[in-house]
Design a protein around this nucleic acid. Structure first.
Lengths: 291, 291
DNA sequence: GTCCATTATAACGTATTCGTATAGTCGTCC
DNA sequence: GGACGACTATACGAATACGTTATAATGGAC
């Protein structure tokens, strides 16, 4: 039994004559005729009686029609779903991400991506980078974004490196400088990430290298929290220039020397190829992280 | 999109390798390969990634599989239903019949017919012959059985004529005769059908022709009722030899002369071809009515 | 490197599909 | 009753699809 046969059968049932059914399907009348003959032969049913040069559906045809129409609809539905999957309108996109990026950048990009994709199911889970790393390896997520370094590396990892910038309150005296060094910040109240963070380590080295006194007045877990403290005037600090950009509105941001490197990565599942949707979104995310 | 493609896809999803899927479908591995390639091309989906010489379903394949399997099942169901319809296991059989036949003969034949046809829906409606005639013309029934004559004839009517027999209680003195005539029944208490019935008319003519006195002691609507009265010893009567046979157990039945004709007919819908089931049952009914 | 299992491609015969041309059938209108 | 119109069925040919065998290509295991 072929779908084309069912299609012809349905058109014939709905329109009464082969001629009209043929027009509707954009094919010739003899095409319908042989198609129906084939269907009758294969099913062993007499679907139509030839009566007065016309076709009249038998009771069997009416019974069979119900099932035939159902099968056709299911096939057409499958076709439609295929198109939806292809265009990314259907599917799911589960993303695990570390906090700073999932506060602003990620949801912004995601909602942009999900426009005109009504059937796309989106899930964002926010965990610290180590947990994100675990989650992606359990294959439960399509994509993950984590800060580096990871305790042990994952395959399919796309790294983005940023040189951190120094952020200062608008009215800060150092705001007039084009570039900030540890010398400029000697003894200046400073907001930093926690002691365990690579950023902390790098800053400590930088200040010691320059022989400047690093006056840490606050330690935070996230850049976003640090930004808020700086905004409140508690001190100065450093941030990455992209992910944390939304939090530095109203602050002055200047290049910092020496380079304090902040690295994040897009992680993909290892054992399974990522879905097309995930790849597409990864592309958008990549552009967003490069900007 | 063709069913064969979906079939190959399903087999491949279920069995992992093309080689095994091919075995399962009784075809060659290259056949599966080209089939899948065609499906991927037509749907525009990358369904499998070639990884280490093996195939691995993509997330898209998993999404699509749900719909593909559903469509396949619907098609297979349609196929199965077609087989059921063909063999008469599925369908409906609505029969309108006059009382005498619907008391015993019809349900007996029907239940015999419906054995090993679990999905066949049966409906019997009992009305007098005139109403039965109306009902069949409204196309709501697949078959009807009515007594003749009908006020106006229907097309597709298959007539069965019977010569009525004389029935007598077992101990009746006339039981020793091989054949009964009105002369034998001169003045004998007689149970007959109602005055309007053709049987009544024929009997009246017969007795008058033979110059015998017709001693009617009871008039009934149905042969079955008449039979019961005779069994009770109220008198003698006549019945048809086939439809009413079940009611004459324990009675003596003898040929009656002159011929009293009883006619019934199987009626088919006029405007629509009868279903195969109806035709099949009509065959069984025909044999039952000839016996 | 060799063997084994797997998938992909090529070449080819057959079946299916669909078009055009044409014949057959029935009802209707004059 | 004959011509016409509307419809279906059949014949045949070209394009496509299907599925085969033979064979290449790939990657993992030893």
């Amino acid at each position: 039994m072929r779908l084309r046969q069912l299609e012809c059968f349905r058109a014939l049932m709905l329109h009464g004559t082969m001629t009209r059914a043929a027009e509707l399907l954009g094919m010739s009348q003899p095409g319908i005729s042989t198609m129906i003959a084939g269907l009758e032969h294969e099913t062993g049913l007499n679907l139509f009686v030839r009566r007065g040069g016309r076709l009249q559906p038998t009771p069997e045809a009416k019974l069979f029609y119900v099932e035939a129409a159902r099968a056709l609809e299911a096939a057409e539905n499958a076709s439609r779903v295929a198109a939806e999957i292809r265009s990314g309108r259907r599917g799911h996109l589960a993303i695990a991400a570390y906090p700073s990026i999932s506060i602003n950048l990620l949801p912004r990009l995601l909602s942009q991506f999900a426009k005109n994709k009504p059937e796309l199911q989106i899930k964002i889970i926010t965990r610290n980078s180590a947990t994100v790393r675990e989650l992606i390896s359990t294959q439960q997520f399509d994509l993950a974004v984590a800060e580096l370094p990871l305790d042990y590396p994952t395959s399919h990892m796309e790294v983005f490196s940023y040189d951190c910038m120094c952020m200062l309150p608008h009215a800060h005296p150092l705001a007039k400088l084009k570039q900030i060094t540890p010398d400029d910040l000697d003894g200046v109240p400073f907001v930093t990430l926690f002691r365990g963070d690579p950023i902390y380590q790098q800053l400590a080295s930088a200040f010691s290298e320059y022989g400047a006194r690093w006056n840490v007045v606050a330690e935070t877990e996230f850049f976003s929290t640090a930004c808020q403290l700086v905004t409140e005037g508690r001190g100065v600090g450093i941030v990455d220039p992209v992910v944390s950009k939304p939090f530095t509105e109203g602050l002055v941001v200047r290049p910092f020397k020496p380079r304090i490197q902040y690295q994040i990565a897009i992680l993909s599942p290892t054992h399974e190829a990522p879905s097309q949707v995930a790849q597409d979104f990864a592309g958008l995310l990549r552009r967003g992280l490069r900007a």
